[in-house]
């Protein structure tokens, strides 16, 4: 188990972000008796959620018209499209 913790410590790469101390205290209160072990883990969780949401909104059509026609032709041939 100790080895597992050492592995984790070694592999994690972190950088520092500053937040106001009163906010830090509020978050500390909020995460009491939750699965979050630190303010950092909570902030990481929330930021990942927000960033992923933003990425989803930014997603455009990832394929060209030419690709789309070629794919539709195959889907028709295989019976997926009429």
């Amino acid at each position: 188990m100790a080895e597992k913790k050492d592995d984790e410590k070694q592999r994690k790469k972190f950088t520092t972000v500053s937040i106001p101390t009163p906010l830090f205290r509020k978050v500390e209160e909020r995460i009491k008796d939750t699965g979050f072990t630190s303010v950092s883990s909570y902030v990481t969780y929330v930021l990942r959620e927000i960033v992923a949401e933003g990425e989803k909104e930014e997603e455009e059509h990832p394929f060209s018209e030419e690709d789309e026609e070629r794919v539709k032709e195959r889907l028709r041939r295989l019976g997926y499209l009429e």
Partner: peptide, 17 residues
């Protein structure tokens, strides 16, 4: 099973259609 072997680009276009 070629008829069931769809790539992500194909399923995505299929769902859109």
């Amino acid at each position: 099973y070629e008829q069931y072997n769809l790539k992500p680009i194909e399923t995505r276009i299929l769902f859109k259609e």
